[in-house]
């Protein structure tokens, strides 16, 4: 099963919106926000990193979730012992996006 590429934003967008609406209806606003948090914080940053490797689309999606739930909190935990937990979440998110950008740049450079 070859899933649509991340570039197919319309399809991805429809799926995400449908999921958020579903959670809103069964669990209310906080349920919807929780689902959004999982997609945005755990899945998206790791997906952007894995997207640079030779993996199938379904592998990237599934592994980004299972890796994200381990990597993201591990990075948040230690700084949050001294700074605000919420700020640590934000910093971790930004750091992972920068890592994804750097990996992409490094890969492009190596491929050229």
């Amino acid at each position: 099963m070859n899933l649509p590429k991340i570039e197919n934003l319309r399809f991805i967008g429809i799926i995400v919106v449908a999921m958020l609406v579903f959670f809103y209806f069964i669990l209310g606003f906080s349920g919807m926000m929780a689902a959004l948090g999982i997609i945005l914080l755990f899945i998206a940053p790791i997906y952007l990193i894995l997207d640079n490797f030779e993996l199938r689309q379904d592998e990237k999606i599934v592994f980004s979730f299972f890796l994200g739930v381990g990597i993201f909190p591990s990075l948040v935990y230690w700084p949050a012992t001294i700074i605000s937990f919420r700020i640590s979440i934000l910093i971790t998110f930004i750091v992972l996006l920068i890592v994804a950008y750097l990996v992409r740049k490094f890969h492009k450079k190596n491929n050229n």
């Binding site: 906080s30 926000m33 929780a34 948090g37 948040v76 979440i89």
Partner: peptide
């Protein structure tokens, strides 16, 4: 904790 803080609720998230 991350999802609870992001969602602003103690139970459902």
């Amino acid at each position: 904790a991350i999802i609870s803080a992001f969602s602003g609720d103690r139970m459902v998230p």
